[in-house]
Design a protein around this nucleic acid. Structure first.
Length: 617
DNA sequence: CGATTACAGAT
RNA sequence: CACAUCUGUAAUCG
């Protein structure tokens, strides 16, 4: 339907570079068909799996923040690929995780969130494991679990809620709040759950167990919980609650699953005597809603789930924060929104009688999101006022990006326009005051603003830059998740990801297999990115390069302080590379004629030579 | 079209 | 000083 939109998935692209997608696909399909896995360590320690893990964590936000041993990504990037691989293999041969750093960060609601930050080495190890576990788990996860999962978003979760409310007519919703979910995950139970999913490699399970029991600084060795901040934690959290998804599912769909998940449990007395009840779970990490048809059913399932979580997963439920909402009367909060149902106007239908009980969804931002939004806008405004004059364009850009970002997220609420009119009203004073000296009659308008907001009555300009009209936002119906989409099958990927040109892909694989010896992982990794970005062509001559002709040049040489970063590397033909560095005149002339360079190309060579502090030719 | 960096959101 | 995962959008560079 919208296939010509720009669809790109970095993670999948990296898998292509390192030729590991097949490995993950096989894990997925084997798991789908009920297979078990008793030897996963080989795959985790696979050379390319380790290198792609490095690739994926190196650009993380925190790759420059040190864990307990003070190491950052800078300490890993200077190793050669072989050294890095060897380091990981050695550590995992006899794994002793480093201590975990404890940091408290403020949440949006004012409370603190306890983070556990593993060292960069342990984050790398966790990423290696995650890459192998994820395909297996993805094959087993429930369709309507949306948090922490590839290709799924809050929008899909909202779309599912809307569907259940107005198509299935389920107007009672149960909210259950688990007390400190991440910090209370039961280790032993988690191990059993992994086993149940078919992950039966004892070495691996032992490894994960050790990881969970890594000492937290100032708190000692944990007996439960999975560190928020660990790379594996989101996946493990889904493993834990996946069992809940299927248990709820079994209450409505068929006896087969029902037996499997209710076996030997005394808790569901509230559900036992009755027939199957229609109920559906929509889950986003530990935040979930269960939609039901009647209040009585809602009450029963609330009791049953509370007991089930307690007995089965050893998790406590907060009675005060858990509740049942009648969506015909009240709003229910979810993922920054609040939603309810209202009677559909009867005049629009030819058959009044049939339409009497039709309900439609009404949604807004919730109160917390509303307050946050007002604050975000106020700080962006202040930043424009208090910032240095030379930073004005940048700060106006940030202001626009802020509003664009907010609009972009909240436009799936049906009555979002009303909310933003209120936001507009609440911030009009501060904006008027602080912008009045900066206002201009006209200015430049970016294509994006033009297209999305251009027909608005009056676009305003600050310092000759268009600013986005705050109140102009219209509702966009959220899209349902199409279950065919998957990162782990050829057909599922086609819906989200455009494959590399196969010729380029082939060459990249060859380059990957033949790293430049003595150079770092960072260099060799960026060499692949650059080659791909230049579509396999020489930056100077634009000719397509054979693999043996590919040279990766440091624009600023290392002896002048140049690094191995992407921005400092460039792919050129090997002879062009010679030409950039050579000083003897006769060699220069020979190369220029051999390469048949025109003026334009020589100009490029000269800019590269200048960066190396060499005479131009 | 490749990569990177900025913004927004959820947990 | 503040981690991780997932998602969306735009801008910049070649």
């Amino acid at each position: 339907m919208q296939s010509n939109k720009t669809l790109k998935n970095d993670s999948l692209r990296y898998n292509e570079y390192y030729d590991v997608q097949n490995l993950y696909d096989e894990l997925y399909s084997h798991a789908k068909s009920g297979g078990k896995f008793s030897n996963l360590m080989d795959k985790i320690l696979h050379k390319e799996n380790i290198l792609v893990a490095y690739r994926k964590i190196k650009t993380n936000n925190g790759s420059l923040t040190a864990g307990h041993n003070k190491h950052t990504i800078n300490d890993l990037e200077k190793l050669t690929p072989d050294e890095l691989v060897l380091q990981v293999r050695k550590r995992l041969a006899n794994y002793h995780p480093h201590k975990v750093e404890r940091v408290m960060i403020p949440k949006a609601n004012g409370k603190l969130r306890p983070l556990g930050i593993p060292t960069i080495e342990d984050r790398l190890v966790q990423q290696c494991i995650r890459q192998v576990l994820e395909p297996i788990c993805e094959a087993k996860f429930y369709d309507y679990s949306f948090g922490f999962r590839p290709n799924r978003s809050t929008t899909h979760a909202m779309a599912r809620c809307y569907h259940l409310m107005q198509r299935n007519n389920l107007h009672f919703v149960v909210d259950i709040d688990i007390k400190g979910f991440f910090d209370n995950v039961n280790h032993g139970k988690l191990m059993k759950q992994l086993w149940h999913l078919g992950i039966r490699d004892k070495t691996l399970l032992k490894l994960i167990s050790k990881m969970l029991k890594a000492e937290i600084i100032g708190e000692g060795i944990p007996t439960k919980g999975t560190p928020q901040g660990g790379i594996l934690s989101p996946l493990l959290s889904n493993v834990v609650l996946n069992e809940l998804d299927w248990w709820i599912h079994s209450q409505w769909n068929g006896m087969k699953t029902r037996h499997k998940y209710s076996e030997g449990i005394s808790v569901n007395r509230a559900l036992k005597s009755t027939k199957l009840k229609e109920m559906h779970i929509v889950r986003y990490a530990d935040d979930f809603k269960i939609f039901c048809r009647t209040l009585k059913e809602a009450k029963n399932i609330k009791i049953a789930v509370t007991q089930w979580l307690q007995e089965r997963l050893h998790l406590e439920v907060s009675e005060e924060k858990s509740k049942i909402v009648n969506l015909k009367k009240k709003y229910s909060d979810f993922l920054g929104f609040k939603m309810k149902v209202v009677r559909k106007g009867i005049k629009w239908s030819a058959h009044k009688a049939s339409c009497k009980d039709k309900f439609t969804v009404r949604s807004h931002m919730n109160q917390k999101a509303f307050d946050q939004t007002v604050n975000k806008i106020k700080t962006a405004v202040k930043q424009i006022q208090h910032g240095k004059p030379n930073e004005l364009p940048k700060n106006i850009g940030i202001y626009n990006a802020t509003i664009a970002g907010l609009h972009n997220y909240y436009d799936t609420a049906t009555h979002i326009s009303k909310d933003f009119h209120k936001v507009d009203y609440l911030t009009i004073k501060i904006r008027k005051n602080r912008f009045k000296d900066l206002k201009t009659k006209t200015g430049t308008i970016s294509k994006f603003i033009e297209e999305k907001y251009g027909d608005s009555k009056g676009i305003h300009y600050l310092c000759k830059m268009a600013i986005i009209p705050l109140a102009k936002i219209s509702h966009k119906a959220p899209m349902q998740f199409t279950q065919e989409i998957s990162s782990y099958s050829e057909s599922g990927r086609q819906l989200i990801h455009k494959k590399l040109n196969s010729n380029i892909e082939f060459k990249i694989t060859l380059l990957m297999r033949n790293p430049v010896m003595g150079e770092t992982v960072e260099y060799n990794d960026n060499r692949l990115s650059r080659f791909s970005a230049q579509k396999g062509k020489c930056a100077v001559t634009k000719m397509e390069l054979e693999v043996n002709e590919v040279h990766c040049h440091h624009q600023i040489p290392r002896h002048l302080g140049g690094d191995d970063k992407y921005s400092n590397l460039i792919i050129v033909h090997e002879k062009v590379h010679q030409l950039i560095h050579v000083v003897k005149n006769e060699v220069i002339e020979r190369l220029v004629t051999e390469l048949n360079l025109n003026d334009d190309m020589i100009k490029k060579v000269n800019t590269l030579r200048r960066k190396c502090k060499l005479e131009t030719i």
